[in-house]
């Protein structure tokens, strides 16, 4: 099970769309794709609309991403989280670290100067 990762950039914002379950199997691949982006962009939007499930290892990958972005002074915004994923992140405290947006288009619009 791998996750499909598509990216596009505009106005210093990078949008990453993920499709598939993020588990210990797929997380390393996703991480390899996104980690480099966390450093070279002012703002990274990750669209979870196509992600039904994020496992414990997946959440750890996200937090690692957050720490890397923080070190590079970049911002990470998570959008399109399913109710379940959002609930799991909230119950485990992971949500506290992230900025959350409703959907990609709004979030993109919201951060444009």
């Amino acid at each position: 099970m791998s996750v499909n990762v598509t990216t596009r950039s505009a106005d210093g914002i990078t949008l990453v769309r993920l499709d598939g379950e993020i588990t210990s199997n797929s997380a390393p691949g996703v991480q390899d794709r996104i980690l480099p982006l966390a450093g070279d962009t002012g703002r990274l939007l990750i669209d979870f609309t196509g992600v039904p499930y994020v496992s414990s290892a997946g959440l750890r990958m996200l937090l690692l991403l957050y720490r890397r972005a923080q070190a590079a002074d970049a911002k990470i915004v998570l959008v399109g989280l399913s109710e379940e994923v959002r609930f799991v992140m909230s119950a485990t405290g992971f949500l506290d670290f992230f900025e959350i947006g409703d959907d990609a288009e709004t979030a993109m619009g919201g951060v444009r100067p």
Binding site: S55, S56, L59, F87, V88, A91, T92, G93
Partner: peptide, 20 residues
């Protein structure tokens, strides 16, 4: 005792409680 026990995330959930 974890809302996330079905995902095996009870340790994280309990730690988040202690931290807060």
């Amino acid at each position: 005792y974890a809302a996330t026990g079905r995902y095996g995330m009870q340790a994280d959930e309990f730690k988040a409680l202690v931290k807060d």
